[in-house]
Design a protein around this nucleic acid. Structure first.
Lengths: 223, 223
DNA sequence: GTAAATTGGTCCATCAATGGTTCTTCGAGA
DNA sequence: TCTCGAAGAACCATTGATGGACCAATTTAC
């Protein structure tokens, strides 16, 4: 869902930078010049540059100019690279550690509207039959639990784990252990979690989430 | 029962969307244009789009347009960017959630050599006096606990939290609450954790880490 | 050393396009 | 006759983008 001029320009600039244009001193043309070159207003160029700056692709200095950043933080890149290859066992262990508490926080911290969103995700997952759509709503269900636990860092950590879970190999793995029976059981457990959340039963929600994830783990790892 | 025109239009739109029309940017024509195209009033088009929106097939944004839904997963980089702005309270809550368990895992999973590295980091921190160096070894101590808990994902999550903790503002915050007394107490608690780890006392290590982080939290948040 | 030019940062008024809302009117069918 | 789908129109709020003015930091020219 793009179609913003600024985004298109940002993408073009990123490609041209990667191609080595401005490679000598890493300095981009002035904003006013870029505006003329692209045939847009300076504000639009600034928006595009802002995106790239946010992404860490460049830095801007008043009076000097706009410069491509030499390189990203290597540690960060290394961590991301490593995380993408996370093992299913590690991931399930981590989820077992974090999610029950997130459910407990959600039971006490969430607004009713937020909890309704959790229930909504659950109910949508009830009426789907294909594994792909179910996976989507399953992930959304867990995402929404985190969304209402009142801790943004925890929410982000869940997003990271979610990205790892969406690797193609993972999907193959989940497809292999898929069965209508298990899906039914999974739905049922989601229902229990929703009930506990809505009745503000923190310990109950924690335990329900714990049991649910233990089942998921058993299914996934065949233990 | 005769079909409603709005439902017919909704069905037509759904089919055309599925066929890949508007596939490039997922943007539908404006309501006024669709009204002309279908030869109906804008009200009718809005009703049809409302059905599709309810069904989750599209989203509408004032001033922008109507877009077919496409699950857009935020990139790792974007999430990490967001994490960098994490609040101290969230971070401490998350650490309290994760680290005690990491310590427990470490007690049971680590090799003796790995535990020695934890002890080593602790002992190095004993003989430093300036806050900056102490912070470095403190972070290293916790890092090494994670390194030997046998879960690489957990270790990486700790690294990410560590990056957040190293933001300049955080350092100011820690400097403000710094005192020789607190530093001494902190060292002492690290010592207890090391002892419990080396005696393979999982529950003991968990509790020691819990108490330690609760102190850190109290100091940092002044509660 | 100083003045002028250059450059990014900020703000504002404006415009067009778009979805959101509300109202009146018309006509076919129950 | 009454109901309700549909047409048609007016107006609102938001958004993307333009164009311009001015500021602050830096570099360049003299």
């Amino acid at each position: 869902m793009r179609k913003l001029m600024a985004d298109e320009i940002a993408e073009t600039l990123r490609q041209r930078a990667a191609a080595g244009e401005w490679g000598d001193d890493l300095r981009l043309p002035a904003e006013r010049d870029l505006a003329v070159e692209f045939g847009v207003a300076r504000n639009t160029i600034r928006l595009a540059l802002g995106r790239l700056e946010e992404a860490g692709a460049l830095v801007r200095q008043v009076g000097r100019g706009t410069f491509l950043t030499a390189e990203q933080s290597p540690t960060l890149a290394a961590i991301i690279k490593r995380m993408e290859g996370g093992s299913p066992a590690d991931i399930m262990e981590t989820r077992l550690l974090i999610e029950p508490s997130a459910a407990a926080y959600a039971a006490t911290n969430a607004s009713f509207a937020e909890l309704q969103r959790v229930r909504d995700a659950h109910e949508r997952a009830v009426y789907v039959t294909d594994v792909h759509t179910f996976e989507k709503w399953d992930a959304e269900f867990h995402r929404r639990v985190f969304a209402c636990c009142g801790n943004n860092l925890l929410r982000d950590i869940n997003e990271l784990i979610g990205i790892v879970r969406n690797q193609p190999l993972w999907f193959d793995m989940k497809s292999r252990v898929f069965s209508e029976d298990r899906l039914q059981r999974c739905r049922q457990e989601h229902g229990v979690i929703v009930d506990r959340l809505l009745s503000r039963d923190a310990d109950g929600a924690r335990n329900a989430m714990l049991e649910h994830l233990q089942l998921v783990k058993r299914n996934l790892l065949r233990r």
